[in-house]
Amino acid sequence: MMNSSLVPLNQSSTDVSNTTLPFCLLEAGYSYIFNTCLLEVTLILLLSVLIISGNLVVIFVFHCAPSPSQHTTTAFIQTMTYADLLVGVSCLFPSMSLLNHLQGLEPKLTCQVFGYLVSVLKSVSMLSLACVSVDRYIAVTRPLTYASLVSQCRVRCCIILIWLYSALIFMPSFMGWGKPGYHGDVVEWCAVQWKTHPAFTTFIVVMLYTPAALTVCFTYGNIFKICRQHTREISKRQARENDCSKNHFSHLSHKRYAMVLFRITSVFYILWLPYILYFLLESGGIFHHPAASFLTTWLAISNSFCNCLIYSLSNSAFRKGLKRLCSICDLENFERHPQIKCSIIIFYIVLLHLH
């Protein structure tokens, strides 16, 4: 049954009993014309469009104008981007649910599958960011042996492990351990009947959130510390050595690139912190509120758009790649780059499928 606090305040109980209303987590924004939670649908659809379009641009730039440097880091960033793109596509599910297009599906299985998929995708993003920080840490602390330590084969194996680990860690949600998150709470069964359990929540925090956060704090803390030390040492010897300027710019490049990735990681945890805190409070039976569940969930999911936004605005290699892509796509140069024509055709095919 629908909680009476979620029913529009200006509708009488008689009307409620005779009308099938969608389940709304927010008390405001109900539309009698469309018989839907208009505010929730608008927010989710807007976020979905931003996430899908933003990450498609990043993928397109990486594919058509790849940067020759930081190829291993780019592999992790691309993994994160594909995961974020799939998050945007999956966000169409709650929109269709609010628009009453999924009434024929079994509620329990639908909630479990959707919650599991979104949780896995966000776990891939989180672990990819942790791997990026480790990659940059090795590049700064082991510059001479970096190429041998971080090979293409090892990077591919690491990406496969990220997906496997993310898929396995949330598998207990199908075994009755509890709800892995609030991504499907716009569906009534997910919010009312699918409960969180302290044991499963603790398991996720210990096995995913905490190790990823500690890894990022350790690696970036040491990266900035080492970059500061190198910058001071190089500045002292700059007048005496001819090649110091080159080394100085190399360390500054490492620091600038680390700053971009640190911003992405910081925004990730800032947006996800309210969600994680509410997850812990609700699992412990301390606090529960439908609006807080909706707002913290979609604030966290908005990170899938913020990642591509920050990366595109802050990373000089990405901006150069975007400019290079624009120049290549110029009509005068179009015929000389058949691979770009093929990529554009694929791009439009993807857009048509998403539409």
Results as ranks from 00 to 15, higher is better:
G285W: 04
Y275T: 02
I234Y: 06
I223M: 02
L277S: 06
Y278T: 03
G221A: 07
H248K: 10
S250T: 02
V260F: 01
H251R: 09
Q238A: 13
L280P: 02
L277K: 02
N222R: 15
E233D: 14
F294C: 07
I270W: 09
Y220L: 02
G284R: 05
R263G: 04
R263C: 12
N242I: 12
T231A: 03
G285I: 04
C244A: 15
Q229R: 13
E233M: 09
R240S: 10
L261W: 04
F249G: 00
Q238I: 14
S245Y: 08
H288S: 14
L252P: 00
I286D: 06
A239N: 11
F224Q: 13
S283N: 07
L277Q: 04
F279H: 10
R240V: 10
Q238C: 11
T265V: 13
S283Q: 05
H254G: 08
L273G: 07
K236R: 14
V260I: 07
L280S: 03
N242R: 13
H254P: 00
R263I: 05
S293P: 04
C244D: 15
R263D: 04
G221I: 03
D243P: 00
N247S: 11
E233K: 13
I264E: 07
C227Y: 02
H288E: 11
L261R: 10
E241C: 13
R256K: 06
H251V: 13
I226R: 14
S253K: 00
R240Y: 12
R240Q: 08
F262L: 11
S266N: 05
F224E: 12
P274H: 02
W272N: 11
D243V: 07
A291C: 06
K246R: 15
N247C: 09
F224W: 14
L252N: 00
Y269S: 03
E282P: 00
F262P: 01
T231M: 06
E241H: 10
K255M: 09
L261A: 05
A258W: 02
H251I: 13
H289D: 15
L281K: 09
E282M: 10
T265P: 02
A239C: 09
T265C: 11
S293G: 07
N242T: 11
H248I: 00
H251K: 05
C244N: 15
N222C: 10
T231P: 05
L277E: 03
P274L: 02
F287P: 08
F294R: 08
C244E: 14
W272C: 10
D243R: 12
S283Y: 03
P290C: 02
F262D: 01
F294Q: 07
R228F: 07
H230T: 08
N247M: 12
G284M: 06
